Computed example of a mutant assay.
Amino acid sequence: MTIFTRTENFREFIRFYPMVSIIVTIHIVLYLLTILPVFPNNWFFENFSGVNLYIMEGEVWRLITPTFMHSGFSHMLFNSFSLILFGPALERMLGSGRFLFIYLFSGIAANVATLMFEPLSYTHVGSSGAIFGLFGYYIAIIIFRKNMLTKQNSQIIVVLCVVSLIMTFLQPDINVIAHLFGLLGGFLVGAIPYFNKRDLSESVRTTASWAGSQRKNISFQSPVKVLIWAVIIILAILGFWR
Rank of each mutant, 00 (worst) to 15 (best):
A230W: 07
Y137G: 00
Q155Y: 14
N196V: 09
N175P: 06
F169Y: 14
E12W: 02
H27M: 08
S154K: 10
E91C: 00
N9C: 02
T25K: 13
V158Q: 13
R62S: 00
L180T: 03
W43L: 08
I14S: 13
I14R: 12
T2S: 13
R6Y: 12
Q171A: 15
T114H: 07
E202G: 07
Q221E: 11
S222E: 01
Y194C: 12
E118M: 13
A110F: 00
L238D: 11
E59K: 14
G95D: 01
G126F: 05
H75V: 01
N147P: 08
V163D: 10
F105A: 09
G97K: 15
G190V: 03
N175K: 03
N47V: 09
I166L: 15
S82G: 13
E12C: 05
F117S: 03
T65E: 06
P18E: 02
L149T: 05
A109I: 08
I139F: 08
T168N: 09
F39G: 02
F195K: 15
I157H: 06
T25P: 10
G239Q: 14
L115F: 04
L94R: 02
F68P: 06
T65V: 06
R205F: 12
L120F: 14
I232L: 11
I28G: 07
Y138H: 00
S96F: 09
V112Y: 07
S201F: 02
V112T: 01
F187E: 00
L183W: 03
F13M: 04
N196A: 13
W61N: 03
L160D: 14
L63M: 04
S213G: 07
V125D: 06
D173L: 15
S71C: 06
W61G: 01
L32V: 04
L33G: 05
D173W: 13
V163W: 15
N41D: 14
L227M: 10
R198W: 06
E59W: 10
T168L: 09
F13K: 09
S82K: 10
G97W: 15
N153A: 09
P223Q: 06
N79K: 06
S96G: 07
